[in-house]
Design a protein around this nucleic acid. Structure first.
Lengths: 180, 180
DNA sequence: TTACAAACTGAACGTACGTGCAGTCAGTAA
DNA sequence: TTACTGACTGCACGTACGTTCAGTTTGTAA
């Protein structure tokens, strides 16, 4: 594999597991069997590497939210969104760990400010598209609440509550949003 | 004021604003006008300082959740909990910033593992007490969902969405949980 | 084969940071 | 006054880490 993309994959994993600040480049290099110089060459700096990784995860999110927006009712799209959220949450904890990390930590938030802004406004717009069809009057609040709900679930499931009942929560939510 | 508690207050603020890893002791000392040695003397280490701060915020949470649990119906307690959550969220952003930070960042999570466990199990138990009275069958799932909802709102309001409609969200939630 | 660019190495530099420690100073009990 | 304790200082040590850069290798087009 391309050393460049290999570096990105390895750094993504390490940054997710250990946090950005707590992952020295030396460990990234060790794991990838490259020299520090190569990272400078490809990404200019540690921050540069981070920004590229974050951008890639944004691309992934955008992709997930745009493939299927055709010819489905709002409720169907909502349920599909829930499905993909929960399956992603189960299959790729690190993905959420990474994103939560970046959003919450002040130092990374600064580095990524513009990219975070871009991503979150996209997510809000996509969600609002759905709720506009369901309850145009309150679509803004309901979108925010929906997003917050999912983020909160990820937060609880990821680290705080080891015994978080993911399956039952999913059922609850699907029930709730089926009757909307 | 006591230098010790002054140090705790200053460090709390700085850790909240800048994150733990990104706040060298030198800055804490500069702000408090003390030497590094004093921190070692009182708290043994930077981690020691962090643990004491975290413990104090836990005490605060416990206090908030226990004063009023007498002679009110479950629904009333739930609404009261919502009230105090939202008023706290508006008046003390840093409090939530700090706690989210500690929960999400892998390195601090490790340092605080036992304290986090202790705190979160307390919160779950307190919340479950309420939902046991409302819907014993699903009290576990509903408690988790409730907690996640609030955490998610804090997360959105705090940093990701500058224009988060806090007032309307509060109204929505109060409405929803009044009809429970 | 030559020439040039991109990939990549390795070592060195500078510095930022947590910890340890010897020592000063203030308060207090005998 | 003496002796003891805890608050507190200031410096220095060690080291971990990001960046830089001169130089080497690899790939590729002419």
């Amino acid at each position: 594999m391309d050393k460049r993309t290999e570096l990105i994959e390895i750094a993504t994993k390490l940054f997710s597991e250990r946090g950005f600040e707590n992952t020295p480049l030396s460990i990234v290099c060790e794991t990838a069997n490259v020299s520090k110089g190569l990272i400078a060459h490809h990404f200019k700096s540690k921050n540069g590497l981070l920004r590229e990784i974050f951008q890639r995860t944004t691309d992934l999110i955008v992709e997930m939210n745009t493939i299927d927006s055709v010819s489905l009712s709002a409720r169907e799209r909502l349920l599909q969104l829930l499905e993909s959220f929960f399956s992603q949450l189960q299959s790729d904890k690190l993905f959420f760990q990474f994103n939560l990390n970046m959003m919450v930590q002040p130092s990374t938030r600064e580095v990524l400010a513009d990219l975070i802004e871009e991503r979150s406004s996209f997510i809000l717009k996509a969600t609002r598209n759905i709720f506009d069809e369901i309850d145009p009057e309150n679509s803004l609040v309901k979108s925010h609440l929906f997003i917050a709900e999912l983020d909160g679930i990820a937060l609880s499931y990821l680290g705080v509550y080891k015994e978080f009942p993911l399956e039952q929560t999913k059922e609850q939510l699907i029930m709730k949003y089926s009757m909307i």
